[in-house]
Amino acid sequence: MSMHLRTRRSIVSAIVGAILFSTASAFAFDIGSLLNNKPKEPDKFAVIRVDKLASLMADPNSHVNIYDANGWGLRSTAGVIPGAHLLTSDDKYDVEKELPPAKNAKLVFYCADLH
């Protein structure tokens, strides 16, 4: 076997070894973090029906906050739920400025998916 071929095989072997080592290390780290961490509290999201939203809106004690995430074009043709807050964007709004500061506030977001 030529010296050039041996050198080439050594380099390829070193690269493959480095990849396997880094993958094994990352995998071991992930397993360790799973074993040492307590389960995360699940998010409390739910899809609600229009009749449920209407009853929340009618109940003065529900303190529900409704947010419209539609664009201006759709709002002008489809309208807006009365009392809804208009978000400045459907995906890049300023949470601190546009949502209530209370972490336990009831929030309802709606938008139309025209796709």
Rank of each mutant, 00 (worst) to 15 (best):
K44I: 12
Y93A: 04
P82I: 05
S76G: 03
A54H: 09
C111S: 15
A112E: 14
A105Y: 01
D113E: 14
S33W: 14
E96V: 11
R49W: 02
M57T: 07
V47Q: 09
A78Y: 11
N70Y: 02
G79Q: 05
F27R: 11
A102Y: 02
Y110A: 08
P100W: 04
P82L: 06
T77N: 05
Y67P: 00
D30A: 12
A78F: 12
E98A: 04
D94W: 04
E41I: 12
P42C: 05
D91L: 10
P100Q: 03
H85R: 13
P39R: 09
D59A: 02
T88L: 05
G71D: 03
D51A: 07
H63T: 05
P101R: 06
K52G: 02
P60E: 08
N61T: 13
A46F: 02
L114T: 15
N65G: 09
S89H: 07
P42M: 08
N37M: 10
D59H: 04
L99G: 01
M57K: 12
H63Y: 09
A84N: 06
N70L: 03
A102M: 06
P82C: 06
D113V: 14
S76K: 12
L107A: 02
D68W: 06
A102L: 09
L99F: 06
G71R: 02
P100K: 01
S33P: 00
L86A: 08
F109A: 01
N36Q: 13
L87W: 01
E41N: 10
K40N: 08
D94N: 09
S33K: 15
F29Q: 13
A84V: 06
W72R: 14
G79T: 05
A46H: 03
C111I: 10
E96H: 09
N61F: 10
A54R: 14
P101D: 07
S62T: 08
D51R: 07
I81L: 15
A84D: 03
G71S: 05
A69Q: 02
K97G: 07
N70H: 00
N104H: 11
D59Q: 02
N70F: 02
Y93N: 01
N70S: 05
E41W: 00
V95H: 10
D94R: 01
I48S: 01
Y67A: 08
L86Q: 13
G71N: 07
P82H: 08
P39G: 06
F29D: 13
V64T: 00
A112I: 15
L87D: 00
E96Y: 07
M57W: 01
D90A: 10
H63Q: 12
A69P: 00
N61Y: 11
R49P: 03
S62P: 00
T88W: 05
W72T: 14
E41H: 09
F29P: 04
L86C: 07
L34Q: 10
A102E: 13
P101F: 05
A112P: 03
V95F: 10
D94K: 04
I66Q: 01
L35Q: 13
A78C: 08
E96I: 08
S33M: 14
K97H: 06
T88V: 04
D113Q: 14
A112H: 15
H63G: 06
L34H: 09
H63N: 15
H63S: 11
N104R: 07
Y93H: 08
L114Q: 12
S62Q: 09
N37L: 08
A112L: 15
C111N: 14
V95T: 13
K92Q: 15
L53R: 04
A58V: 00
F45I: 13
A69G: 03
A78P: 01
L114R: 12
